[in-house]
Amino acid sequence: MPSKIKAAALVALCCTVTGAGLAGCDDDTAADWDPFASDTPKASADPFSGTKKIDVAGRSVNVSCSGALAIGKPVVVLLHGGGDGLDKMAAFQKTLSKTNRVCSYDRLGAGASDKPDGPQSFATTGKILTGVLDRVAGDRPVVLAGHSMGGLIAARYAPDHQNRVKGLVLMDATPPTIAEDITKAIPKSATGQAAQLRTQNLAIFQGNNPEKLVMTDGEVRPAGRIPVEVIKHGKPYLAAVPKYGPRLEQAWTAGQRKWLALSSRSRLTTAAKSGHYIYVEQPDAAVQAVQRVTSQAER
């Protein structure tokens, strides 16, 4: 398999990885959950524009905001994929900010934010997201738009924060059962590049990633009747993985369908001209999805 194809598969399955958010149903999440880190909105939003470091639970978090706050309109918050940072989404943010207030941030271990002190769980990652929302949105509703691992984070977070999260856009989001999907698609008996892909991903799920995030599969829990747009890639690049590629593509598509259980107002579309980075390769599809969700969230 050409190195570029192999790298793309790793991005989708690793850097894209099973990200994190508040799974709620997992044992480690329950153990880490802080009942005092509630979702109660914190007064007014900080109207700053540009990039700045903010303090969240004693940690420095790099945040970027643009666009004007408007009465009745939600704040759009972008969540980058694993291995990326907010800079990757800069052009996407700039386009969206023409009509919306848009913010993005580097998670701990990513970009210019502090590194985590130790292993992170879905709950601790969710606490940082809550702190960021308190600062950039205050008591305003938010729409979370996440790519890859960021999509998983958003989807796991929303069910526990229904009074704040009023819409979701999941751009080729990591499936909720990605670890199980990979072990089924690529058996332990696999050899060569497929075996390497399997081993690397399973290690990443166990916390061997820049964010030190220990990731576990989980069921999809409902997030109310919020509008949800799920967008999957149309270019079947995962199929290029020797022997097991078609299985990976099927598992990824099935995983995207699972996210529809988030809401009775969910819909799945395909970005026919895009690989994994939909907001880069087919930005119009991503922009239009965010605009549709924000419009519905205003009602």
Rank of each mutant, 00 (worst) to 15 (best):
A289M: 13
D84M: 10
Q162M: 08
G167N: 08
A137H: 01
F122C: 07
L96M: 12
M215R: 10
V136E: 01
T125F: 04
V142M: 06
N62M: 05
A286H: 06
S113Q: 06
L248G: 03
G83S: 09
Q196W: 09
K52S: 10
G138E: 02
N209V: 05
T177V: 11
S60D: 13
S44H: 08
A145V: 14
L202M: 10
E180P: 01
P283H: 13
G245K: 00
G245E: 12
R135G: 03
P35C: 11
P116N: 14
K98W: 07
A271I: 05
G167R: 02
W259M: 06
I71H: 12
L86N: 00
L78P: 02
D87V: 11
T294I: 02
Y244P: 05
S64M: 05
E281L: 07
A286R: 02
G118V: 03
E249Q: 10
G192C: 12
P119H: 11
S49A: 14
V214P: 05
G19N: 12
E249W: 09
P2S: 15
Y237T: 07
P210W: 06
L69E: 06
V61N: 04
K53D: 14
V75C: 03
P175H: 14
K243S: 13
L144W: 03
P47A: 15
Y279L: 09
V214W: 07
